[in-house]
Design a protein around this nucleic acid. Sequence first.
DNA 1: CTGAAAGCGCTTACAG
DNA 2: CTGAAAGCGCTTACAG
Lengths: 342, 342
Amino acid sequence: MLSAMASGDPPGGGRVSIGDVARLAGVSPITVSRVANSSDAVRPATRDKVLAAMNKLGYAPNSAARALRSGSFHEIGVVVHRLDRTGESRTVEGVVNAARAEGYTISLVDVRSPTSAEVTAAAQRLRHQAIDGLIIVRAEAATAATLALPAGLPVVVSDSRLIGRHPAVSSDQAGGIRDAVEHLLALGHRTVHHAAGPTDSTPAMVREEVWRRLLTDAGRPVPEVMRGDWTLRSGYELGLRVDPAATAVLCANDEMAAGMIRALHERGRRVPDDVSVVGFDDIAVAEYLWPPLTTIRQDFSRIGAELVRMLLDQVRGQGEPVERQRLVPTELVVRASTASPR
Amino acid sequence: MLSAMASGDPPGGGRVSIGDVARLAGVSPITVSRVANSSDAVRPATRDKVLAAMNKLGYAPNSAARALRSGSFHEIGVVVHRLDRTGESRTVEGVVNAARAEGYTISLVDVRSPTSAEVTAAAQRLRHQAIDGLIIVRAEAATAATLALPAGLPVVVSDSRLIGRHPAVSSDQAGGIRDAVEHLLALGHRTVHHAAGPTDSTPAMVREEVWRRLLTDAGRPVPEVMRGDWTLRSGYELGLRVDPAATAVLCANDEMAAGMIRALHERGRRVPDDVSVVGFDDIAVAEYLWPPLTTIRQDFSRIGAELVRMLLDQVRGQGEPVERQRLVPTELVVRASTASPR
DNA sequence: CTGAAAGCGCTTACAG
DNA sequence: CTGAAAGCGCTTACAG
């Protein structure tokens, strides 16, 4: 428990400063600073006196002063779009936890749309606030040409068009799609239809290109791609008009897969007896959809941790060359929404 | 676009300070400060000179110095548990957006478990960091007796046992449960079973108590409560052994309702023909479950906004009495998972 | 409308 | 092992 109130008479409206502690302990402020920073150049008896005074007064170092002196806030800025989506919130959670382990806190900004203008404004707001580096989680629609980040600010990005321009962390999209397509072809499907994500999203485009290339390489017909926007609703609408001859559909994410399955139900098509469906992400409900969804799991907390690691490499290594891109493996999780065609 | 690099020769390894701008513009640092803070006591011509110099050098005020001087970081600490859950992430999103509108950023800490010890540690870590106030989003297992928050730090809490001790914002749980129970009774169900949340959660207990009281007041039999833990899995497991005579089940949240529906399917019980199911929250998939879920919608972004408003009332009004509790209305959303019993 | 002086709370060399 | 001095970058009265 903290003591309720300082018993001395600290100036400045109640906030206890290093000088107050020094006075009570009968030492200089420098010694208090040493104790606060766990320097070992303090005699144990002195240390104890100071610690007792700190406790008595409820002293907490003023981090504004500390940051001003040291030049670092020990804070990382995070720009995120749509925090209510599984991938985004789990990635941010991973970032928060990894940052904490390194002694950093997170300053979070949510942009309304993932465009260059919004992200630029968010980055400047954060810069204004004072951060040591910036993590951009999926600025899908931002491009390197139009994004104007403060000069000299270390940056790491997650999946986006900014890869190449800035160090980046991504799921192994290609590997995931390959696993899914091979799984479906191995089950005996002649080809695989694709309910893709929006064209302004890098992960969506990567998934689509890999799907197309795999079918081509395997000598299978490539059905016309169906275009969605990540939402359940878009998956549902695509499901209402999916080719009646389709026996397997690979969806760009789990939400679209859930909408697809619901539409197929309404059309009287059984999953997986008539149509196999595969998602991407492995969100919490995937296992409890009816039927339980076969999907490609992304390791979001690992992505968050790698984002922090690569950012702090830059922050600490100032000037050193930095790893440009790190791929985090995906995993195919086979459940009951896929089966051999009848 | 920012200019790539300062063309002057600013000291301190590249960071541009107010003095550099003053020198280039041929004015004093005070004048630069006035321009940076949009004071109107600056001649337009002077202002333009200063703004030009700022742009040329890529000046951004050092917020550590600013905070040290003014005593405020314009930052709000947010303690959250399980950011990957809908309620939590949407509430945080609401907090972030409302805070931004007020010129505040968010420093986010994620606790592994919602206990007093974890929340206390998180609050102290944030205090250390420097925040103007603290928002605790659902510290479900923390109690006022054991939570030790830094003295003098303004605090607002969301649903939790801390209500009463600290100003709080909550959904109108009672109103939501009333709407749901009345909806089911009006459909002709004799009584309503309840798949409740964990006993250490205040919202779960409130929902359970209101459910019990409503049935008692209506003279209906009160079935033994079923105990879950918010997860899909727990709802599924309760669904496997729900009373075969039950015709209506009110679940503590949508995830549990999704698990409940899946278990009922597996047991060959049709929803809503044999059993009506109601959830709580209105998460994104609720509409796309099969059947689409009747549920009680919570307005999380409004909750987030109210949390910020009540916190800043404290921060700004120092000493003034503050509103103790604010209820945010819920809304019953009727879909296809409820019907009259056969 | 503009500026010289002081100070916010802390830490970093430097000296003893 | 301990302390006196200087300064991080900014803003707040105060004076002109």
